[in-house]
Amino acid sequence: MFRLMRILPILAAIILPLPSHAQTPPATDCAPGAPCSQPLPVRVVIVTMFEIGADTGDAPGEFQLWKERRKLDIRIPFPQGYHDLYYNPDSRILAMVTGVGTARSGTGVMALGLDPRFDLSHAYWLVAGIAGIDPQDASIGSAAWARYSVDGDLAHEIDAREIPKGWKSGFFPLDKQGPDDRSPPITEGRVFALNPKLTDWAYALTKDMKLPDDRGIAKERARYSGYPNAQKPPFVLMGDQLSAMTFWHGKLLTGWANDWVRYSTSGKGEFVTSAMEETGTLQAITYLDKIEKVDRDRVLVLRSGSNFSMPPPGVAAADYLLRENEGYAGMKASLESLYIVGSKVIDQLVGHWDRYEKAPPE
């Protein structure tokens, strides 16, 4: 009996499974892109676009807060993409950094979707990034859920110094005869509509949240006299996104962005945030959905304002843009807003997985 008592703890250690946090998922031992007998189950994919310096412990980019606070401690090599992936086996959250621009975001998301190491068939996707924000709609630090992402690159362009008299802009859609051509827009590959029921649900869940504020951004927004929404403390709103590779800035281009989004969505969309990557990300997801690797109806896009898309009254666009390039006024607040707003949605999805695995919330 004494010998049996001594042996039992040893047998228990061998037979009983380790706590989930101590286990290494089998899929992490599979080679990148190679067949994998036990794909990693994923409930949420967090899509970020860039990081500054190290992944932890220094000035954060879009990825760092998610990695640290969500305990995404398992690194998964991802040589076919821009940055290694990170995973939490308890929450089954996977996070990626696509790299900046549509080429990197599109190819990175496609590479992830086709990687046999991951089961993404029921995964929700949260694209979470900073953005320029239209002061007519919101203040820096505010977070906007997009209903539409519109491509701002597929176009004709004539230098503004050479445009015909009467043209509002030298930039107009492909297949059109000028900026005043209002024939029906071509939307395939240019306009991506998010699942409206899922987006409405996410907005309803977060619209009353109090977002981070500080003296720095309060001082900055006070400069925007005549723009009441820009002078408000940060808040959550619904607002659509223009995805373009050029980092544009100014009052005239903000007017162009509003016109472009309104025209491209047949008046249904409202430009609020400017970024670079979503049309690449959403195009990849659209293709992956066709072969049932992912579910396109489970995608959310959240962008928070790190900077305004135009200068305050009385300041030249070039002067303001060059100053912002030295450090966005709302960078810290926008990153915190992304995390706390996005986390509320993720907590709801993961916390009620028995319900939301089967179908998206409405």
Rank of each mutant, 00 (worst) to 15 (best):
M1E: 15
L8E: 13
P9R: 07
L11W: 14
A12R: 04
I14V: 13
I14H: 12
L16D: 00
H21C: 09
Q23W: 02
T28C: 08
C30A: 11
A31K: 02
G33A: 00
A34F: 03
C36P: 09
Q38W: 02
P39E: 06
L40M: 12
L40E: 08
P41E: 02
I46H: 04
M49Q: 05
F50Q: 01
G53E: 10
G61T: 01
E62V: 01
E62H: 03
E62L: 01
Q64H: 05
W66E: 02
E68P: 03
D73R: 14
Y86K: 01
P89Q: 13
S91F: 14
V97M: 09
V97P: 06
T98E: 05
V100Y: 07
A103V: 04
A103G: 03
S105I: 00
G108W: 02
A111P: 05
G113N: 04
P116C: 07
R117K: 10
D119V: 06
L126A: 02
L126F: 02
I130Y: 08
I133L: 11
I133H: 10
P135K: 05
P135Y: 04
Q136W: 11
D137W: 12
D137M: 13
S139A: 04
I140G: 10
G141E: 10
W145C: 14
R147E: 13
Y148N: 12
Y148C: 12
S149I: 05
D151A: 03
D151R: 02
G152N: 12
A155L: 13
I158C: 09
R161M: 01
R161E: 04
E162L: 14
P164V: 05
F172H: 08
Q177I: 03
G178V: 06
D180N: 13
R182C: 01
E188I: 07
E188W: 03
G189Q: 06
A193M: 06
L194D: 04
T206K: 11
D213W: 02
I217N: 01
A218D: 04
S225L: 14
S225M: 14
G226I: 02
G226T: 01
P228I: 09
P228A: 10
P228F: 09
A230N: 03
Q231K: 12
P234K: 07
F235M: 13
V236H: 06
V236S: 06
M238P: 00
Q241Y: 03
M245D: 13
T246K: 12
K251D: 10
L253D: 00
L253E: 00
N258R: 15
V261W: 10
S264E: 05
G267W: 01
K268R: 10
A275W: 13
M276I: 01
T279H: 00
L282I: 05
A284W: 02
T286H: 09
L288Q: 01
E292G: 12
K293N: 10
V294I: 00
R296Q: 13
D297K: 14
D297A: 14
R298D: 07
R298H: 09
L300M: 12
L302P: 07
P313D: 13
A317R: 03
L322T: 08
L322P: 05
L322C: 05
E324N: 02
G327T: 04
G327E: 05
Y328K: 08
S337P: 05
S343K: 15
K344A: 13
K344C: 12
I346T: 11
I346C: 11
Q348D: 15
Q348A: 15
Y356D: 04
E357G: 10
